[in-house]
Nucleic acid binder design. Structure first.
Length: 445
DNA sequence: TCTGGGGTCCTGTAACCT
DNA sequence: TCTGAGGTTACAGGACCC
């Protein structure tokens, strides 16, 4: 993709996005797959594509597509289950490289970040030169390519990196913003998904330019005051958001899609316990407590509901999360409904050091928390799942009893059961989106 | 074609408080 | 004491992003 024409005047924001990140890391690990279609994602009957090499994308494969369909489109593809530990390690190295250039680094996910390089110019040149420097260093050190967008605002930089893909760099200087922006389809704007796009198309608005020439009030009536106003500002290239290096997490959680729909309450309860333990482990590893517990239930027909409850005293104890999650679930009064997915989330997180402590009433739970901390230590030493509640064991002592996505087909290193899933505490998204999923997140870049 | 898992943010509604 | 207005908070759901 194009080199910057001239200096990147008026541009201090970089958006760096790894190209097909997870798939690229896998190709680096399996050099024999270079130049072939590779898919990273769940291989079970309900698995979806997380990342695909550009060779696979040529067949129409893209992130979030069911793996089974991807294999119909591209039968020669190699499917890999994903290795979050490895991707996290590569991500940490890349983010460390960014931070050696500027302290103003705002990671959005494992594979992309905004950088404000206003203060790095004297050392490393203008923003475009810094972008090329980053691309060269990432390739030299990690053996993977990335694309860089350079602009005066975050959202234009992000659109520019998308346009630069793969393995490119694009500068959009302030005087060029309107020419760059207005021909784009409305769906290109950050925050316009399928639903919003449908509304805009109904209004006859196809391009960002169309949107810009509609009164803000009209958009606000159609989309709500916040979204309408925001999109109108973006359509004129106005985006006051700064690059913010770090922000605390707002929630964390875990969810599980069963390989087949479940109508047995005992299985659901066991899964809720498992998810509560996982979530609590993450809270403890980040030194946070949850004020609110929420559950998610998705039925066989994909209808989804959530329920939440605020606790009197914030907690990071798995048993307490479970007690609340189970109470919320039981209150639904479901009579053998067919359930596809359950999830547990910890919300309204507070710092463990500054949270109010439960005194006398908490004495018993202290014992519980101590036990879970001991389990954390055992997990660090002997691996995830080394210690777990007895209800989560098979009769023969194997971990399990939980339905998870299976694997099938052309799979290298297929991860099947529960123990194969890494329980990682990963560097998360900071700013508006932070923590990173255990299962690879869709990664269309 | 049949939809994962991790998140954030916004909106509408209801309950509660002053 | 009752009533209503207005603000705040909790909750549920939906849209969106990676």
């Amino acid at each position: 993709m194009g080199r910057p024409a001239g200096r990147a005047q008026g541009c201090t924001v970089l958006h760096v996005d790894m190209d097909a990140f997870f798939a690229s890391v896998e190709v680096r690990r399996h050099p024999e797959l270079a130049g072939t279609p590779v898919i990273v994602g769940g291989a079970g009957n309900r698995g979806v594509v997380t990342s695909a090499t550009y060779e696979a994308r040529r067949y129409g494969v893209h992130a979030a597509m069911p793996t089974a369909r991807a294999l119909r489109l591209c039968p020669t593809a190699t499917v890999l289950p994903g290795d979050m530990a490895l991707y996290s390690e590569v991500s940490r190295s890349v983010m460390a490289l960014f931070r050696s250039i500027t302290p103003l680094v705002e990671p959005l996910s494992l594979d992309e970040a905004f950088l404000d390089v206003a203060g790095a110019g004297r050392r490393l040149g203008d923003a475009a030169q810094i972008g090329e420097y980053i691309r060269a260093r990432v390739f030299d050190e990690q053996g993977i390519t990335c694309s860089v967008g350079v602009a005066g605002t975050k959202f234009v930089a992000k659109l520019a990196s998308t346009r630069a893909k793969p393995d490119g760099l694009l500068v959009v200087r302030p005087p060029e913003v309107m020419d760059f922006l207005h021909p784009l389809p409305v769906g290109a704007l950050w925050g316009v998904g399928p639903k919003t796009e449908e509304v805009l198309l109904r209004l006859g608005l196809r391009t960002v330019g169309d949107l810009a020439h509609v009164p803000a009030k009209t958009l606000q009536r159609a989309l709500g005051p916040a979204a309408g106003g925001h999109l109108h500002e973006l359509s004129w290239g106005r985006d006051p958001r700064r690059v913010v290096p770090d922000e605390t997490e707002r929630s964390t959680g875990a969810e599980e899609t069963f390989s087949t729909d479940i109508d047995d309450p005992a299985v659901i309860h066991r899964e809720l316990l498992h998810l509560s333990e996982r979530t609590a482990g993450r809270l403890r590893s980040t030194g946070t407590l949850a004020r609110t517990v929420s559950i998610k239930v998705r039925f066989a027909d994909f209808a989804t509901l959530t329920r939440s409850r605020t606790l009197e005293v914030p907690t990071d104890v798995g048993q307490e999360l479970y007690d609340t999650a189970r109470a919320l679930y039981d209150a639904l009064g479901l009579d053998r409904a067919r359930i596809r997915l359950v999830g547990v989330r910890a919300e309204r997180l507070v710092d463990a050091g500054s949270a109010p402590q439960q005194l006398e009433l908490g004495a018993r739970e202290h014992g519980r928390r101590d036990a879970e901390l001991a389990a954390d230590r055992a997990a660090r030493r002997f691996g995830a799942g080394a210690v777990r509640p007895a209800t989560l064991l098979h009769r023969d002592g194997r971990p399990g009893g939980l339905s998870s996505l299976g694997t099938s087909g052309r799979v290298i290193g297929g991860a099947g059961g529960d123990t194969a899933r890494p329980d990682l505490t990963r560097p998360g998204r900071t700013s508006s989106r932070r923590s990173v999923p255990e299962t690879p997140a869709a990664e269309p870049g």
